[in-house]
Design a binder for these strands. Structure first.
Lengths: 223, 223, 223, 223
DNA sequence: GATGAATGAGACTTCATTCAT
DNA sequence: AATGAATGAAGTCTCATTCAT
């Protein structure tokens, strides 16, 4: 459309506005939600006129979709770059959790935005784009889980379901944070999440001797 | 719609219309979200006139709040009734998961509605009511976890954070279901969730011999 | 929709607003044209709130369509009532012209509105409704012409094309009037239009002796 | 689009862009109407940037006015050139109709554009220019009629009103064509229009014997 | 208790126009 | 002479809410 003709051309001046708008929209959407955010607010936040929003994005829903899609891509890109894949899996997995937590703390807004199930009244093609972006991300996580299962480290549970659950855990953490307003540190959160994911809720000792899924009550403990 | 199962009225029947409206609102909110649901839609679904909505509830936000609050109370009531508390904890916990899954499958709409972070533009007192209801529910789950920790069965992780994470897991499952459209059975879901919560992701064998939190890679495995 | 249920019911209270709006819209559209008329203007003219317009009509284009359709129906109804059909055709035709002219003077606004080819950006179904209404009216006029041809009074030219041309003449007259701002009287206009339609432009004498459709030039004239 | 037929530039080629824009505007306005045509559309159609439109014309309304004015001048120029004025009037009149029909078929877009009563919201000076151009054209046709009346060929009806009616007829024909999508040939249309104008609707035979304006019915004509 | 016609503030979006390049 | 990113006034339409019945 407006794009770089001849293949080369101005890589930078491709509308500085576009990025300013995306940044503003991220802040606004994540803080107030999609419906409570007015295009007027985004424009003011970005320091451009309302019309400039529509010069860069066809509609509010499109702006939202672009935000989520590009954000998810960025997420995956960063994850891919930060996680060195030839580490032994346990280390690999711990880094996944760590980088993830870090990303979430830094891009909390984006994650909240992308998790928001607001696509109800959207045009079908936009819903599709947003869902495809989410799926790509869920699929990325599921892929890591699947690799862990193939190498025998992870239990053979449904990888896609697990990925959804993991994202749900992250969502739960974010909600907990916004409720209690006492943000945990990066390391504390990483340990917490890693522990839950890797070991589950069960205390180490009682579970160790138990033979089945149901550990006996502690009174049977010789110690 | 989802109405009066088994003959017992689940939400207080202060008036015939009131109940019809709550049922209709539950269906509408859960299916289309708060903002995409019009008062007109609810009225039509309930088979009453729009004015009747305002005769029974001061505002749309109040209707939403009433729905969430009464729903959460009902949840807790049922959980309390169904879970016999003097069972040994592991059994207790498994029943919690099982009943929870059952409730979620039956009252999926209510859970989706209550999880929706749509209270952005609401009046402060209504936000407070909704959050109090959610907190009561999260607190209930956290209480069970705390009891499990006190009896030594569960790892000493932050109970409130854990409760949020558990609800996040459930949310993730529900989203996974609506994406894949192949609803798991009650028992399958219960096992899946229970397994993840109790044992974590780690495969049993390799983890068994490891001494620390970080299991060694399988090549060190003599078997 | 909002309509008379059970078949009987309140014939009158079927929204007095609706008629007030149609009247106001007629005045506004005819005076300023479709695009230059704001919904705000119509509301003010009708003495109702902007929302009332949308309570009665789904959109501006729908309001326009309703206006044209109901107007055309009214036109045909009046024409049918006023023209006694068993008169000899010449009288019949003269009355058609006379009543037509009268209608046009009285409902000039409506005719201007209906003639306006503004349906360009309209939804297909609305375009269809408006065109159907126009066609019904053109067809009515064409029917009268056809009858005149069958009884041998009118030349066997394409009736539908003739009807369009007649409406074009009327349109031309209305434009002429709005240009010159000196409205002719009912009778003067009737005579003028009738003369043109019945006898054409040719002066009686010279044309009388010509044998064919193409009158010879005056040099062949003995006088 | 409709451009430079026969090698002669029809609209003054003050600049290359200017002409491209006028051509594009003609196509766009005639097809979609003034209000539904975006400056963007015209620019795209002309293959120039939006700014170039404003480099050549002060405003959209000015562009429209220039189009109509130059078009009408061109019309009159061609009519004057094609109609040799010293022919006997009947032949003169027939050529007028013939050339007119030809022009209309070729420049249908321009005629439709110029006939469109869209000047409602225009600035007074622009309205004046457009109306002056239309009037010049209507006056040209009225002048021919007046000449016909002076030489005794045409009935002494109001020449200006007649001119308007004639243009209305032509408009009616064009609408009929766009409705029925079966364009008549040049000659067929010429005959049809000429017949209507010269002889009116009345069938030759019955009208021949009648003495007055109201012919008697054919059956019981005792004399 | 219940109704539904009426309201009007405010949202999204359009598009003619400008101006630095 | 030409461009196109940016603008912002103004329009259409939505929908929670009211109130006379």
């Amino acid at each position: 459309m407006t794009a770089t003709r001849d293949g080369k051309a101005p890589l930078a001046p491709r509308s500085r506005s576009r990025q300013k708008i995306l940044d503003a929209a991220l802040g606004a959407f994540s803080r107030r939600g999609f419906h409570e955010t007015r295009m007027e607010d985004i424009a003011a936040l970005a320091g451009v006129a309302k019309g400039t929003l529509y010069y860069n994005f066809p509609s509010k829903a499109d702006l939202f979709a672009a935000l989520v899609c590009e954000g998810m891509e960025m997420f995956i890109t960063v994850l891919d770059r930060e996680i060195v894949s030839d580490l032994p899996f346990p280390e690999h997995f711990r880094r996944l959790v760590g980088v993830h937590v870090e990303l979430l703390l830094r891009w909390r807004d984006l994650f909240v935005t992308a998790s928001n199930p607001v696509t109800h009244g959207f045009a079908p093609d936009i819903v599709e784009r947003v869902e495809a972006a989410r799926d790509r991300y869920v699929g990325y996580v599921a892929g890591i889980i699947r690799k862990g299962q193939e190498t025998g480290y992870l239990r053979p549970l449904d990888p896609d379901l697990l990925a959804s659950e993991i994202l749900g855990i992250i969502d739960g953490i974010l909600r907990h944070q916004s409720r209690t307003r006492t943000p945990h540190s990066r390391d504390a959160l990483t340990s917490e999440v890693h522990a839950l994911l890797v070991h589950g809720l069960l205390a180490p000792r009682p579970a160790r001797d138990g033979a089945g899924a149901e550990p006996k009550p502690p009174r049977g403990d010789p110690g």
